Simulated assay, not measured.
Amino acid sequence: MAGDIRTVARLMRDIDDNEPGWQDVLKLLYAEARRARVIGLTGSPGVGKSTLTDALVERLRARGLTVGVVAVDPTSPFSGGAILGDRIRMQRHATDEGVFIRSLATRGHFGGLTASARGVVTVMEAMGLDVVLVETVGVGQDEVEIVRMADTTVVVTVPGMGDDIQAIKAGILEAGDIFVVNKADREGTARTINELKGMLNLSGDHNRRAGWEPPVLATSAVDGTGLDELVATLEQHYGLLTAEGGKMLAERRREGLKREILELVQAGLMRRLLVRLEEGGGLTPVVEKVLEGREDPYTASEKLLSSVLGA
């Protein structure tokens, strides 16, 4: 809470490595943490999320705000490692004491966010950071998970993706508060903007919350086009959330916490189940019963669940 970088880095490492005791630390921090403004950036790979995040950090710092960045990188399914290249792209902020960047690997966690990301955000809030940017790995419309954490969700795409733009239909289309067509210097920007606007109009009222109609902005992180407009739009959306005593912001966070608590319960059940399985010789005996036709998988799963719940 005093902002000691080494302490923060060690705690984040323990959270990411799932070391024993990190939850006890977070229990203490959660009660004391000042809730930061969380902005999520999501979109397919190669749309320039990291470069856009870097540009946003620069502009937020110019306003005197302290900024945390949680950058989630894809994990290799073979080695289990990650490149963690976001730190390389944001190297120019490395000496800025008002910026803290943490890269996380997905470790096989789908939905665009690593399981430890929420814990890392809590640590950044305890540090007293004003804004936390969460940049998610591009995994298509499953990225709606970012909505559970972010106060404002920015969906990033680029021109020239062709039919790939259909990938942001459905869930992520409803989840986005602001849509950004990055690399706007490319050919086809106007067409992509029109397609997005058309898709938003067809999606009905799902993505229109209390007078907010998600805008579609054109940006270029390379030459700075549209970045000031994006920052102004982010401020406008946050202003709407915090109006009337923060009623909308509280409701959004309430829904996010509800999902987070359920996920923690689910994770706890899984841990207990794995312990019970180890005590009984692992999953192999159960699989063998099903394979031999002595039991069906549905009954087997019900028995396993009952062993955890004690019912």
Rank of each mutant, 00 (worst) to 15 (best):
42 T>R: 05
30 Y>L: 15
70 V>M: 02
69 V>Q: 14
54 D>M: 07
48 G>I: 03
70 V>P: 00
76 S>I: 01
61 R>W: 05
70 V>Y: 00
40 G>L: 01
46 G>E: 15
29 L>D: 10
33 A>I: 12
37 R>L: 15
35 R>G: 10
60 L>P: 01
38 V>Y: 12
84 L>T: 01
38 V>G: 10
31 A>S: 12
84 L>W: 00
49 K>E: 12
50 S>F: 00
71 A>R: 07
27 K>P: 13
79 S>V: 03
83 I>W: 14
53 T>I: 14
69 V>W: 14
40 G>T: 01
57 V>L: 04
68 G>L: 00
69 V>A: 11
82 A>V: 05
41 L>M: 10
43 G>N: 07
51 T>K: 06
70 V>E: 03
79 S>C: 06
32 E>G: 11
55 A>I: 05
33 A>F: 10
47 V>Q: 15
37 R>E: 12
63 R>C: 08
24 D>H: 09
60 L>Y: 03
35 R>P: 06
32 E>W: 10
55 A>C: 04
53 T>H: 08
42 T>K: 07
25 V>P: 11
46 G>Y: 14
43 G>S: 01
45 P>V: 06
79 S>H: 07
61 R>F: 01
61 R>L: 13
78 F>L: 12
72 V>R: 13
82 A>K: 15
75 T>K: 11
32 E>V: 10
58 E>R: 06
79 S>W: 06
76 S>F: 05
47 V>E: 13
81 G>C: 06
74 P>Y: 03
69 V>K: 09
33 A>E: 15
70 V>I: 04
79 S>G: 08
30 Y>C: 15
39 I>M: 07
52 L>D: 03
46 G>A: 14
45 P>G: 13
31 A>C: 07
36 A>T: 05
64 G>K: 06
60 L>I: 02
56 L>E: 02
36 A>S: 08
79 S>M: 00
44 S>D: 04
44 S>W: 02
51 T>L: 04
63 R>V: 12
47 V>H: 11
31 A>Y: 13
36 A>G: 06
60 L>V: 07
24 D>E: 13
62 A>R: 10
37 R>S: 09
39 I>W: 02
27 K>Y: 14
55 A>G: 03
77 P>T: 00
69 V>H: 14
67 V>E: 12
49 K>W: 09
87 R>Y: 10
34 R>C: 14
72 V>P: 07
59 R>I: 14
83 I>K: 12
73 D>T: 01
64 G>R: 05
76 S>Y: 04
76 S>D: 05
75 T>F: 05
83 I>M: 08
53 T>C: 10
66 T>K: 05
70 V>R: 01
54 D>T: 06
42 T>Q: 14
77 P>C: 03
68 G>D: 01
77 P>W: 03
70 V>D: 02
52 L>R: 08
61 R>P: 04
34 R>A: 11
32 E>M: 13
33 A>M: 11
65 L>M: 07
84 L>V: 03
33 A>L: 09
87 R>H: 07
38 V>R: 15
73 D>P: 14
71 A>S: 08
86 D>N: 11
24 D>V: 03
